[in-house]
């Protein structure tokens, strides 16, 4: 069975307007999935549903064959699904980096020696070992968010959900966080579900899920998704800059292949 599977999941905050309206999809182990959609499309609600912060009104969610939404299994689910939220300041609990990373394992009742090993592992994975004893308030946004990722990694999750984790960062911080996440996906085989509205972050995903008003409207590889410029525009989404430029150039008679995604591809196509 798939690592995550959603079957016809419905959820509403006020019992009238559904935030997530009949969503079904599966995620396999090791996949890098991007979830996009404009504000209010239900993408953040989806993250909360998968890790049991919210329980679905209808439908079923399974993570690693454990049913989500049961009071008894909630910690088993959360151990497997780590969520990194938007604002790094509001998810760091402690005033020292290593204490913050220790928070998760402490909650699970893990013995001291192993907590130390997990802190080492998590801080190495995000490249923040040098800041182990520093205070998060002195770090940059990107560094703080990397500490937040380390705090989640210390729980040794199989799945990492990024709930717009780069939205509040500057371009440099965004790059830092993304490269850490990509590395985790490749080297540690952590399954990633990246919720975002930066199209540049979608480009490297294995699969893209496009949400609009709580429903999945598209699901495909980034290359295929970004060929559908018109449909994306209708639901308030834009193309990555490189694809946008390529499309404009093609319209103006410059011969370019379809489905250009990155700046590198664009420049290569132009130089031919």
């Amino acid at each position: 069975m798939s690592l995550i599977s959603l079957k016809d999941v419905k959820f509403s905050y006020d019992k009238t307007n559904p935030a997530v309206d009949g969503v079904s999809f599966n995620v396999e182990k090791g996949e890098y999935i991007a979830v996009i959609g404009h504000n209010g499309s239900g993408k953040s609600t989806l993250a909360r549903l998968i890790n049991g912060l919210l329980s679905p009104d209808e439908g079923e969610i399974y993570v690693d064959d454990i049913k989500v939404g049961d009071k008894k299994t909630v910690f088993e689910v959360r151990k497997r699904v780590g969520v990194v939220f938007q604002n790094p300041d509001n998810q760091l609990v402690a005033s020292i980096v290593e204490d913050d990373v220790a928070f998760g394992p402490e909650n699970l009742g893990i013995p001291r020696k192993e907590i130390g090993e997990r802190i080492d592992f998590a801080l190495d994975a995000v490249g923040m070992q040098d800041f182990r004893k520093s205070s998060p308030t002195r770090l940059s946004g990107g560094q703080k968010q990397r500490v937040a990722i380390a705090g989640v990694l210390a729980l040794k999750p199989q799945i990492l959900i990024l709930d717009e984790s780069t939205a509040m960062l500057d371009p440099k911080g965004r790059k830092e966080v993304l490269s850490v996440v990509k590395k985790l996906n490749k080297e540690q085989a952590v399954t990633v579900l990246a919720i975002t509205h930066y199209m540049e972050e979608v480009v490297d995903a294995d699969r893209v899920i496009v949400l609009d008003s709580g429903k999945i409207v598209m699901q495909d590889t980034p290359r295929e998704i970004f060929k559908r410029e018109k449909e994306l525009k209708e639901i308030g989404l834009e193309l990555p800059l490189a694809s946008y430029i390529a499309n404009k150039m093609r319209k103006n008679g410059i011969e370019l292949p379809e489905g250009v995604l990155t700046e590198q591809e664009l420049s290569e196509a132009l130089c031919k």
Partner: peptide, 9 residues
């Protein structure tokens, strides 16, 4: 939420 997500109980 963040504390919940990190298994605080």
């Amino acid at each position: 939420d963040a504390m919940d997500a990190r298994c605080y109980a």
